[in-house]
Design a binder for these strands. Sequence first.
DNA 1: ATGGGTGCAAAGGATTTGCAACATT
DNA 2: AATGTTGCAAATCCTTTGCACCCAT
Lengths: 146, 146
Amino acid sequence: MTSENKAYNKLIEAGVHPSAQRLAIMEFLMENHTHPTVEDVYKGLCPKIPTLSRTTVYNTLRLFSEHQAAQMITIDEHRVCYDGCVEPHVHFYCKKCKRVIDMPEEEAPKLVQNRNIHGNIVDEIQLYYKGICTECAQKEITEHSN
Amino acid sequence: MTSENKAYNKLIEAGVHPSAQRLAIMEFLMENHTHPTVEDVYKGLCPKIPTLSRTTVYNTLRLFSEHQAAQMITIDEHRVCYDGCVEPHVHFYCKKCKRVIDMPEEEAPKLVQNRNIHGNIVDEIQLYYKGICTECAQKEITEHSN
DNA sequence: ATGGGTGCAAAGGATTTGCAACATT
DNA sequence: AATGTTGCAAATCCTTTGCACCCAT
């Protein structure tokens, strides 16, 4: 199956009408597992869709997360980013380089859809780790040994 | 022990020099378990410290979280809020009323200080649940039954 | 022709920055 | 005097809003 088809199917399954922009944005998410911000998606797709606007990217990513076709990640205090993978997994945020990294080996809490806790209905779970990533930790050691 | 003393001790233990503003902000956090935003803290303390500035509240809350004297919560995509309690516990975010609520009965992942995962150093963990709170869920039922 | 989707420009809001004044040791 | 702290004003950056246009049904 081509990546266009995968993106198309995902939108249909999520109940999102597949416009050209939405398809391109979903495809971008599915090909870039780097937790892109709105700006990243915008920049990444501008060459392909020169008329694309930031507003559309904002609207679309929000729509995706509302339809569980993507997850919104608020691990970075400064900006929101998105993940095309909606399977539960842990995210790690490096306070130095500001990257968001997947931690597939860590156990993630499973989401029971519409779980009820004292009347509060939970439909989304996010587990965030924060700290310093390998690369940045390495750099720090090198710098300090000078 | 008075609440001033508690706040004072907490700052000292965290290695934060206790100025009047910092004491007042820490005291506010320890007395208000409502996950206040910068604006909330600012508004809450203005009567007591009329010269207080938002900048100071920003600086101070950031300083606290860097010294583990408070935790920064990024559950709400629109604004950061803070929790004076640094014991691990789950936070719930209501997408309707935007409140952040503690979920003490849910098991929270324990933070092993400076845990190392494939070279990534984890020094902070946040577990977020999102959905609709009891009150808002109730309201929705009432409205729809009209 | 109708409703949803898109994009521009402007507005809004949260947060940071630069800098001067201030307090405290 | 030196250092760290505070607070104002301005700047910055992210995100939303209002509205007009456009496209597909």
